[in-house]
Design a protein around this nucleic acid. Sequence first.
DNA 1: CGGATCCTTCGGCCGCCGCCGAAGTGTCCC
DNA 2: GGGACACTTCGGCGGCGGCCGAAGGATCCG
Lengths: 237, 237
Amino acid sequence: MTTRDPQATALARLAGLIADETRAMCLLALLDGRAWTAGELARHAGVADSTLSEHLCRLVAGGLLAEERQGRHRYVRLADARVAQLVEDLAAQVGPADRAVRPRSLRESSAGSAMARGRTCYDHLAGRLGITVTDALTARGLLEQETGFALTDAGLAWFEAAGIGLERRGRRPLARACLDWTERRPHLAGVAGAALCRHALDAGWCVRIGSERAVKVTATGERALFDLLGVDAAALR
Amino acid sequence: MTTRDPQATALARLAGLIADETRAMCLLALLDGRAWTAGELARHAGVADSTLSEHLCRLVAGGLLAEERQGRHRYVRLADARVAQLVEDLAAQVGPADRAVRPRSLRESSAGSAMARGRTCYDHLAGRLGITVTDALTARGLLEQETGFALTDAGLAWFEAAGIGLERRGRRPLARACLDWTERRPHLAGVAGAALCRHALDAGWCVRIGSERAVKVTATGERALFDLLGVDAAALR
DNA sequence: CGGATCCTTCGGCCGCCGCCGAAGTGTCCC
DNA sequence: GGGACACTTCGGCGGCGGCCGAAGGATCCG
């Protein structure tokens, strides 16, 4: 009673925001980096609109989500890359979703394996696709993984040559490791990871499947990844 | 009801373990990297022994803590470096403790500023001390922070020359950034951070103050840090 | 052996919080 | 304007979980 620790209070409050299955489902869904409407999230989580509305209020008040009102819609997305990283870290800690182990239905099963093949992780690539690209960068000496996690000079040049701009803004690190929860290995995140993902989508290297986080590599993408990084297309399947 | 997502369930459950002020106080206290007895934690948190005992059971069952029974004592510590990192990340997200801003008492105030000067963060150095060392490593070209966070070749040689062994075991990264919650900037963690901290304590560069996480740089330490890294002693005060 | 210490189990209390449906507000479209 | 739509507010319900104190092991020490 008398000895309240403000840091502990804040920590508990932050964790409390995530410590609810419905809110957790929302945060995981929002890891696709896009904005969802309140109604979409309610249907996704399987609760009443009213219930989800309250959850959103708490998440926004807690600084985890940013909202944008447009007409009668309330769009909501993860507040920033820091929050995304936090959710990713927590998700990685609990391990791969059981869904991959014992799928309930064919639809979930195929959705699960599509997610395992390739997906976005907030704003960068993840799944087998993300790991493959990260490994290829490392094998070519563009990314240092032995002594930490950083782009090499050759790596900076590679991004330059590929026409992928790396904007240094704020304190976000250029390269950062994000633990992949299907592969259990780190993949490239940070400014470089985001730029690479954005370029991959813009240049048609991969396209989103369905309405969630899964992505699929196109024929164009296979060629580009082979030409630029020597990635064998078979590794992506 | 029908659409339970196992990953969301696990995520919520993990967060739920942290989402209690008493348990949060325990986790933060255990960030000193040492083992505490159940009774110590109970007094620290200001709750009954019985209450804390239950909390410990949940934390151990949830995999956040490891326990070791010795006679009538139950020693408990953070399960591993991953858990420590998780707690650190969450703590960094909520920002510096208000205690630094508006101290309640002289004792807390001086304890707070000692923590801000230098402390351990699970198994590596943090606070102004940690930041100063990290900056010195970076300034000397031993640590790369521009394009990520990794030791350079010169950095590996420096550790070798200083007689600080870097054991590569498991998948723990050699160098990793840990966000400092007093300085709001990254400091060196990972295998290298742990080895450096251990060496600093073993060699008498710094000593623990009181029973918590704060450490103080000794005269020996000031000399060593100046000789090896060119650190100005004034920066540590 | 007896007392002290440390921890755990149990029962009971209380408050918080997630849930819903119904009613209300604001926005869009025809 | 009127109706459909998206979201919010409110009241009420139910359950979970944190808290305590008392009692019950377990261990150590003299």
